[in-house]
Amino acid sequence: MSDAAAAAYAMAPRERSRARSLVGDGGAAWLLTLPAIIAYLLMILLPLAGVLALAFTDYEFGGTSFRWIGSENFADMLKDRTFMASIRNTVIYCFFVVPLSIGIALLLAILIEAGARGRAFFRAVFFLPVVSLTVAMATAWQYLLHPSIGPVNAVLRGLGLGTPNWLGSSDWVLMSLGMIGVWENVGFNLVLFLAGLTAIPRELYGAAEVDGAKSAWSRFALVTWPLLGPTLLFVIIITMTRSIRVFDSVQTLTQGGPNNASEVLLRTIYQEGFHYFKFGYSAAITLVFLAIVLAVMLVQTRLIDRRIHYG
């Protein structure tokens, strides 16, 4: 999904032929992608190279010198209680947020799409969390989930149920953050699914019905689900990367506590770099983080892409 390919593809046919006549086919492509390539080099590859170099040093922010220490930073990670907790928590968080936020979004999208009215209203309502500022919303969550004055626990108390300490107990904190993550992601996924649904040709449903797909479920399984494939792949990738990148809610609500129970990868990177000033170690964790993101994307595109047929 490189910008270069997209740019070349986006060219109108007439421009393509004119460009071809001047510098030849391959040359034109390179020429047209040149700005994107330069931007990519400067903005992404160069800083990445810097991070890569830093990861093998013991450089500290503000320090005047550094040493090359090989893979020591990576060896340290395996012994680092905080890092291991942060990997584990990030994985659990992803497995909680990704399926739930995609499942709920799909369900809501189909319901809204099927509904006769109020489409715009529901779309706006569920999209609100996406456009609201996480840090500001975190304050609202903090109040809602407050152990003694929060409305959630007030309701539970009224019903005679237990009142968990949502953000203060290490048994609940990850789940609470997960629920907030689902809430944040559902709206975004919903809009993507709605776009995907409207792109499915109506006549296919008619055709399916003629061919004997009488129930709503069989129409979903035969038409909606397979044709939603490309959207789904995109939604999975986006939600996955958004979940791996969770930071704001953790930083504002729990600061990784109690006792690392809600420490996540991005916060560890931030903490190591800007709190402890260990730039080298922080860079090394960033590389691990990048490797994970890349691996996830590769697995998804390779495995799932094969089974998807694009309309």
Binding site: Q142, S148, L167, S169, L253, G257
Partner: peptide
């Protein structure tokens, strides 16, 4: 003593519950 995270203690105190 409850396990207040972040500034939950300040909020509870201001609300007159601590």
């Amino acid at each position: 003593m409850p396990n207040f995270a972040g500034t939950a203690d300040l909020q509870a105190f201001a609300a007159g519950k601590l």
